[in-house]
Write a protein that binds this DNA or RNA. Structure first.
Length: 330
DNA sequence: AGTGGCTCCTGGCGGC
DNA sequence: TGCCGCCAGGAGCCAC
């Protein structure tokens, strides 16, 4: 499942191959792929040239320049309908924004490994090439947003964990007072943008922190470890060209290699690479969660003080020493 | 406001 | 062999 490193790999592979191409036509095969229908997508993208690619968390961005403005309005046919003067409003740039979710893939004509199934969406370029959006589970999507609205589009999205703006202090502020388990905290895109299930488990292992530890109970030294672990894990994922745990392959059909060095994710029952203790699997926030019970001990599981407990009050029985994770072992 | 649970969706897999 | 039901998971939505 594409997380930040996988999306970044896709972006790096696509960038040199799509930048400069101009959209000729958009074909939608699955209407669920976008809130915009085919006609709207086509109207917003046709004639525009991809000038840049980008990434925000797990979102992939294609920046498209203003539609080929009739810079020199072809004054030729005097009687011809030259379109409305309102054309000027289309002059600003737009972003095509893609989320791959579980199984989304972006492939170009000559890429190997193109599925036999039909793509959900196809973008044809003026040089005759195509960019295809495949997505077996149909969770992914495509949005087209005017440049001016991009900040609003990502309004609720958290800090970029590999960016300069992410610091230990920011992480501590984000965790402060929170009773949510670290695993849930890391997966919440409103805090950090781009961490998914694999990298959350791996980062917690690196930081030697138990996934059920309340975020607000993490001390300064541990926060520093978690900060470093999140960045190192994501960076390592990029260096290994992503994790091909499910079906991830980059646009050229190449598998990533990060799965080869996973410490805990999907290693249930296998010996910890550090201490030989069998890796354990629990469910946290509905997500499969893997950890080493020895390297990531349960300690200080008390939710932050002064935090009124809501909900059913099940959680946070004093000391949290109850054998909570016994319930969901596999 | 913060948190957890449900939902979408489909291929793959285990059990019968 | 074939069928059924469960599972995985990112993020939006909703209830508490």
């Amino acid at each position: 499942m594409p997380e930040l490193p996988e999306v970044e790999i896709v972006r790096r592979r696509l960038d040199p191959r799509v930048v400069g191409r101009r959209v000729r036509r958009v074909v939608v095969t699955d209407p669920k792929v976008s809130p915009l229908d085919e006609a709207e997508l086509d109207a917003r993208l046709r004639g525009r040239q991809i000038v840049r690619t980008g990434r925000r968390g797990k979102w992939l961005l294609f920046e498209l320049a203003a539609a080929a403005s009739p810079a020199n309005p072809p004054s030729a046919a005097p009687g011809a309908d030259r379109g409305s003067p309102a054309k000027a409003t289309e002059a600003s740039e737009v972003y095509a924004i893609v989320h791959l979710r579980m199984t989304g893939r972006l492939l170009l004509d000559r890429d190997r490994d193109r599925p036999s199934a039909r793509p959900r969406l196809t973008v044809g370029f003026d040089d005759g090439s195509h960019l295809y959006f495949y997505d077996v589970r149909r969770f992914g999507g495509v949005w087209v947003v005017p440049a001016a609205d991009v900040d609003g589009f990502f309004g609720a999205l958290g800090v970029e964990p590999l960016g300069d703006e992410f610091t230990v202090q920011i992480l501590r502020d984000l965790m402060s007072g929170r009773a949510a388990p670290l695993k849930s905290f890391l997966l919440d895109q409103r805090h950090l943008a781009g961490v998914g299930n694999i990298y959350a488990d791996e980062a917690l292992f690196r930081a030697r922190l138990h996934p059920l530890r309340p975020a607000g109970a993490v001390g300064p030294r541990e926060a520093a470890r978690l900060f470093a672990a999140v960045r190192e894990t994501l960076q390592l994922g990029i260096e290994h060209e992503g994790s091909s745990v499910e079906s991830f392959v980059d646009p050229a059909g190449e598998r990533g290699r990060f799965q080869e060095i996973l410490n805990v994710y999907q290693r249930t029952g296998l010996p910890c690479r550090t201490c030989d203790t069998p890796i354990r699997r629990i469910v946290v926030g509905g997500r499969g969660t893997h950890y080493c019970p020895r390297c990531q001990p349960r300690r200080n599981m008390r939710p932050p003080q002064g935090q009124p407990r809501r909900g059913r009050g099940r959680r946070g029985s004093p000391a949290g020493g109850t054998n909570r994770d016994a319930a969901t072992h596999r």
